[in-house]
Amino acid sequence: MTSSTPALKTVQDEAQERRSNRLALAALYVTLTIIVILYSLPGLGVIISSFKTTQEISQGGLWSAPAQINFDNYDEAWNNGNVRTYVVNSFLVTIPATLLSILVGILSGYVFSKLPFRGSNALFIFVVAGMFFPPQIVLIPLFRLFNSVGLYDTLWPLIIVHTAFGLPICTLLMRNFFSAIPAALRDAAVVDGANEGQVLLRVMLPISLPALAVLGTLQFTWIWNDFLWPLIFTQSDSMRTVMVGLVTLKGQYSVAWGVQGAMAVIASIPTLVIFIFFQRYFIQGMTLGAVKG
């Protein structure tokens, strides 16, 4: 028996413990605050420098505060005709590919959850496994495929490939979501004479909004941020998306660091907006996609 046994705690001990607890909490706050500041520095540097003139950057470095907030870099970046084309292209790819990948995920997720058949579980795993493979393993055949059907250097390959590669995660999340819906709901509709298409459309989808929000935020972010596919399937400036364009334009603005910073900020705004407003869904998707895999 030692004095640390709770039953033998004295009042004095307890007061001391409370004091040391409070001290530990304060230490935790200070440490975390320092870490979070250090952690945010890289991003902050880019944002700060996007408001500075090139002269200011080359004299004072990225990390000093700007003498005055100056939007010249944003002006320059936005009025470079290419940047606007890149942003428009990114939307033209991201919006349809997000919707289509969710649509195919709904269809297959519904079958795997509510209309299982012999071997459907194996088929499900076969589809979901696609999520884990490095895309490099299909790069060359897809490059040849889109070349031979004349879709190279258009936005179509990007939409098609993102839809296909979104299928695993969308199927996984929709199946798990549909599985949590009681079978009685479907059975009641079937008794009332509804077919599977009507069940899916009128019964399942209206209560699937949370799952659709999760998938929408995830898919939008991933597709918008993608770099590899537009690098492989597009070539001309008029077909580049914003992430590849960012890298392409670096040559043109090799010493205009402020403009580079402004372009990086512009390219990140859509996903940042999604993150800020739909953070809950975003995080939920990240964990669901990972944990249930």
């Binding site: 918008w224 941020n225 770099f227 992430m243 960012l246 390219a267 990140s268 996903t271 940042l272 993150f275």
Partner: peptide, 8 residues
């Protein structure tokens, strides 16, 4: 940072 592109 998770919502940023690796390009950024």
């Amino acid at each position: 940072p998770i919502c940023l592109s690796l390009a950024v």
